[in-house]
């Protein structure tokens, strides 16, 4: 008998003496709570509160112009594999291990938690290694709740999804919060549309 079978056998020996508990159904969260009519605005509020920065532009053209301007302050960039070609900044492209700036295409965002949704197909290292990270998100991909976002993502799961909710932080040294410990110390959400 394998470890698997012995573990399952022990579980099955006990469960008849435990009263079946039903699953309570979907998580209701806020119910009629602070569900904002302005979902991107709610995302901005939550993401900013966690130390992130939000830039809102009306069109892909304006996003491209903003990125070009922002990227001018950096020497090299690493870019996501699914970033539209016209949004790739005019910088020397470098591996994420050494790039000063990372630019990723976001799968979406979550307003209630202030989270960016990042897909492994866009490249994990660009999402994590450069000290500054810009993530493009289409405004229609900003979900109000985590439940909505997970439902959307679950229909097409890559090997890894990362939810990034602000810059990397730690309070492990003397309980004092510092940013940029392992992940990026500066994270910008570029909301397009």
């Amino acid at each position: 008998m394998s470890a698997r079978d012995r573990i399952l056998e022990r579980v099955r020996a006990v469960l008849p003496s435990r009263e079946d508990a039903a699953h309570p159904g979907p998580f209701l969260g806020w119910r009629a709570g602070p569900l904002a009519s302005d979902v991107p605005g709610w995302f901005s509020e939550m993401f900013t509160k966690a130390g992130g920065e939000v830039v809102r532009v009306g069109s892909p053209g304006l996003a491209s112009a903003w990125l070009a301007d922002f990227a001018a302050g950096f020497g090299t960039a690493s870019v996501g594999a699914t970033l539209p070609a016209d949004l790739i900044p005019q910088l020397a492209i470098a591996p994420p291990e050494v790039a000063e700036l990372g630019v990723s295409m976001g799968r979406g965002a979550v307003a209630e938690t202030g989270s960016l949704i990042l897909d492994a197909r866009d490249g994990r290292r660009t999402q994590l290694l450069p000290p500054t990270h810009v993530v493009l998100v289409r405004v229609e991909d900003v979900h109000a709740t985590l439940a909505d976002a997970l439902d959307h993502v679950s229909h097409d799961l890559p090997s890894a999804v990362g939810l990034h909710s602000g810059p990397s932080k730690s309070a492990d040294i003397g309980q004092i919060t510092v940013t940029g410990v392992h992940g990026p110390g500066r994270v910008l959400a570029l909301i397009v549309g």
């Binding site: 969260g29 939550m46 938690t113 997970l150 090997s159 999804v161 990362g162 909710s165």
Partner: peptide
Amino acid sequence: IADLSGFLQITARAATGQPIGNYVSLIS
């Protein structure tokens, strides 16, 4: 997977008071 919506939030709020952990990895 829908169950994560409640657990990711309440765990962070109970542990450190954040709305969610700064990074969540969903590895499949």
